[in-house]
Structures are given as C-alpha cells and as structure tokens.
Amino acid sequence: MIDEAELSSILASDGMWTFAYLDHHGDEPQPAQHSRRHALVDELRKCGAPEPDVQAVDDAVASDAGIPSPSVIYLLVRNGAAEVVERFVGRRLGPEQVGYGRIPPVLPLLRHRADDIRYVVVEAGREGAHLRVELAGRTGAQEAAEVEGRTDSLPKVQAGGWSHKRYQTHSEEIWKQTQSEVADALEGIVQEQRPSFVVVAGDVRARQLLEDALPAGVKAITIDVDAHTKADGADAGALDDAIVRAIDERLGKAVTDARDRAAAAGGRNGAHGVREVVAALQEAQVDTLVLDARELGTDETLEALDAEPWVAVGEDDRAAARSLGRVQAAEALARAALFSGATVLVAEDQEPPAGEPMPDSPVPEPFAALRWPRENGVAGSV
C-alpha cells in the first residue's frame, strides 16, 4: 500500500491514465468471471485505453480469484504498468468506474482509505493468546504474535478436599502469569503500532485476568467482547460486529472532531461551502476536508488544474496553472486536498431503521477544518 505522499506524486505527473474501480468477483464460477472480464476489456477499449493498459487491468482483475466477497479493487495503470493497485474488503462505495483520461477519480480510493483504522485483536485462552494487528478494510493481519503460557496447569475439575483447592490455586496462578505475559506483549504492540482500539475476545476468565494485568493506557482503548472465539467451532460474529461498531464510531468521531474544529473561534477555524473551501485549498490552508456522501453525485463542477493551486472555480483563479478540464466538485476538492497533504473524510449515509425510508434532507455543503484561522472571514488570510 502506497502512502498519500507517493500517491499524490504519481497523480501529479502529466499523462493519461487507465483507471478502474470495481467489485471483486473472485468467488464467482469461472464462466461468470470470464464474462465479466470480457465486458471490462470491451469497456476499456471503447474508452480509448491503449492495449498494454487493458492487458494490465485484465491481469490484475484475473489475479483476484479467491479474494472474499464483498470486496473491491482500485487500479491506476499507465504505459502498461499498474502503478496503483489497492484492494479493500467490504462493499463498494459509489458506482463502478472505468475509463481513460488525464484526471482519474481519487475519491473511491480516499473514501476507502478513510476506513484504514489500525486495531489489535486479542483472542485469549487460559493457555495463552493470539494477537494480531489489522487494518480495517484490508485482507489479512498486518502483524501477528502468539503467547503460549505454561502447560502444566490442571483443569479446575478435580477431586474434592484440600487437593482440589491446591490444584485450583496452582492453575489460577499459572493463568495469571500467562495473562501477564499477554498484557506485556499487547502493551509492546500498542506502543509500536499506535492502534485506535484493542478488541479482546476468548475465554471469559482469561479475559478477566488479562484486563486486570493491562496498564491504564491500554485498558482505556480496550473493548471486551463476550465471545469465546478460542473454542472449537466458535462463531466469530460477535467479534466481527464489535469491530465494525468500533470502526464506525471512530469514523463518526473524526467527522465530529473536524466539525468542532471548523466551528471554533467563531467559525474562523473553518471554511464552509464550495467557494470558501476552494479558497482555503488554494492557500494549502486545509487540514481536514469533510464531504457528505450525497455530495458525490451532484452536478456542480470545478476546474482541475495541472499544478498548484490544483483546483479553481473558474478561469479567474487558476493562477499560472493549466486546466485539465472540469470535473465533479467533490472529486476536484478531494484531488486538491490530496495534493496539499490534507486529510479527506466522507460522512457516509446512515442506514435508516429496517422498513423506514431514507430521510429527505438537504445535502450538507463541504467544509474544512483549517491549519490556521481565517481573518475577517476570508480564507487564506493570516
């Protein structure tokens, strides 16, 4: 996975791009996969994509066999080489997009990357624990570790009397020692990886002992899940649900924090509406750009530029940059935010309760939390 600085460097270079943002269908029957790939190749050729690019896209999609569904792939290809290949677990955010042009869409990629929240999963048992670092929306663990405790503990079901009590005490002490080792390993991972949260599942007594052994800083970001995932045949549904809720809460908090920062100092720390946000982006003043998912389909357009300030409302504010054409406003804002090192967040639609229609409310305007406050209500002034 390339970082935002490398991505912006790639996108800022002049030239034409073949792009695709598609659902994965790696678990479909082979005939269906072949049919879908043929349709993709035909569509790319109709868009004018050169044959080496078409082949590179087809190869990337063909290599997705076996990837879980739902999941998506984002591709940027030039001169027959796939320069950006990103795969995300989960549903597609917005329509599929396939094309060839100077301004590839960046919002699908940035929208998924906003979900790239790092977290740690601990599946604890009395004999030890499995720890893994994961990145939301990505397949596979980023890092994994196993802590194995002593194996000379005895189960608590023993003969009665003093012997039984001695065996219980012996086992309990070993379990405590094991979970203390797990806590030490977890503390090291948290210090190194800086996750947003830790989810602990597994044996109930092991979880209790682990929580008792955790330092305050780790305990503050830990979520306990009542799911015995270490048991044979255990259902991980409760664990998965807890992870999804934690991710959604943190994304919502990031948007709320940006809104609060934009409202600070009587609103001088923010820019609201397309024109104010454009002005702030032109001064590289934007720290966090927030778009609403419903904005992504509006008809409003802006000029996408080939150099700083990267975006303009019209010819009057292009500076010395050359226009690459007009694109949908949210795309143009996100592109300029990427080039200026700003964070891009998208407030996703909240699903209404089952059986209820989506509320018909006005589409919120884009806003930005700024790196420094505006003076006299004018973005770009210091």
Rank of each mutant, 00 (worst) to 15 (best):
E143H: 14
R166F: 03
S153M: 15
G160M: 07
H164W: 04
K156P: 02
A144M: 03
D152N: 08
E123P: 01
V106C: 10
L107C: 12
L109F: 13
T151A: 14
H170S: 14
G140D: 05
A114N: 07
L135T: 08
H164T: 01
H130R: 13
Q168C: 02
Q168R: 07
A124V: 15
T151S: 12
H130Y: 11
R113H: 14
H170N: 11
G160W: 08
E143C: 05
I174M: 06
R138Y: 04
I117A: 06
Q168Y: 04
H170G: 09
V147Y: 04
S171H: 05
Y167W: 02
E172S: 14
P155F: 00
A159W: 12
E127Y: 08
V120R: 03
H164N: 05
K165V: 10
R118D: 08
A124G: 10
H164D: 05
E134G: 00
P108H: 09
R150N: 03
L135V: 10
R113K: 15
D115V: 04
E134I: 00
K156N: 10
V106Y: 04
R166C: 01
T169S: 14
G128Q: 06
I174R: 11
H130G: 08
E127C: 01
R138E: 05
D116E: 15
A144G: 02
H164Q: 10
L131T: 07
E123S: 15
V133E: 03
A144L: 02
Y119L: 05
P108F: 09
T169Q: 15
G161I: 06
